[in-house]
Nucleic acid binder design. Sequence first.
DNA 1: GCTTTTTATTTGTATGATGATATTATAATT
DNA 2: AATTATAATATCATCATACAAATAAAAAGC
Lengths: 236, 236
Amino acid sequence: MLTKPRRDNLSTQVTNNLGRWILSGKAQPGDVLPQEENLCTQLGVSRTVVREAVKSLAAKGMVDSKPRRGTIVRPKQTWNYLDPQVLEWLTQEDSETTLPLHLTELRKALEPTAAELAATRASDEDLLIVQSAYQTMANNTEDVEAFLAADLAFHIAILHATGNPLFIPIANVVQASLHASLRITNRTTKDNLLSLPLHKEIATALQARDATRARQAMLTHMEDTAGRLGNYRREL
Amino acid sequence: MLTKPRRDNLSTQVTNNLGRWILSGKAQPGDVLPQEENLCTQLGVSRTVVREAVKSLAAKGMVDSKPRRGTIVRPKQTWNYLDPQVLEWLTQEDSETTLPLHLTELRKALEPTAAELAATRASDEDLLIVQSAYQTMANNTEDVEAFLAADLAFHIAILHATGNPLFIPIANVVQASLHASLRITNRTTKDNLLSLPLHKEIATALQARDATRARQAMLTHMEDTAGRLGNYRREL
DNA sequence: GCTTTTTATTTGTATGATGATATTATAATT
DNA sequence: AATTATAATATCATCATACAAATAAAAAGC
């Protein structure tokens, strides 16, 4: 079974180009982007496409357009860093350095609380999904890709089980973090075996609806992740 | 000095319309939006405008367009709940009920850690901004609007001082939370006087670069906020 | 029944024209 | 000379139209 190539449409491609361009720092906050017509000729697309791409970036808080003045890059404070595409662009620029640390830092702040909330609020169905994700992890310790996919599903299920929709976008952070773990730290089968019991403890605490224990278990997991990242960095 | 009315451009207006429409639940995940041409006639705008608005919503993870199938509302898991506009739309739907609780919950998870990180990493300039925001609060206890604006600046300064850009978008949550506090709980001058010392303690801890104390001070503040919200809800 | 081909529908892209608006430059006024 | 009012202009904003491409559904072929 093949996944269709189905390349992105033009405005998506241009959005990616411009997004990466900005994230790379080649266009700094305050800078004016080339005007529409120039972008058209430079990229070889119509104004329609350029405008739709710029609108997408504007929706992510990255640019702002006005007649006569042009389209400027907004200050970084307004960028939606938790947007999946922004994280992706950021990964391609920053993956070797501080991004993994920052991702882990945010997870450490949030996921223990998420686990705590989930322990008291999760529906039986939520717990089933957590359990099932854990099983998939356990069954795929040999396959790094499949393991990490299940790992992501595990954490997403917990975020979802908080019953607080505002926790949902943190899934993007988890995904970026796991992605970094795959790309940066040469993740091995052994890593999977080490992190498995940490997840089991989380799942068990949730099943027992023990909020304190769930928080602690998640915190342990996060500290392990941070620690492994630190080891990797020390090896450089 | 007047701020110009300067009404939003059409595509922004249409984005707001559609965004609110979806957040209100009148279009559920999986539903197909009216096709472009129909939206044009219904809203009395050109296809250009409709398409740019849809692209903005797509950038926030809320819809997805495909030829022949149309534009569908994506599952809520992909919505960027931390986007300022999404939060605004959400406020207009949900402000009376659970949203303020959810906002506070997220803040409680994040801001104590932010304060902890800020205590060790803040630049002298960062601390100056925190201090200055506190002063503005202290000078404006009588003016609820001005006080809350300074309150927001205070918390944003701390998020910024973490040195971790991923914490920045949480500013949107703080803003929505304070906005709710203004609209929902009939915030008074007395509330300002009560929350002032809590902020002072945070600022002092940061100044002393005492991470543990900063975390604790912020946690106390968050619990106070949550408590006040609880009191309000009990009065209903 | 299954696969392949055709068809119809909807979004995707291109282009040209016109409108609105913010900046800059100029002129008028004090 | 400084300030304010006016006009010019560059840029994005909007509209209208045409055609292309992609996809889901229907039809045809095996």
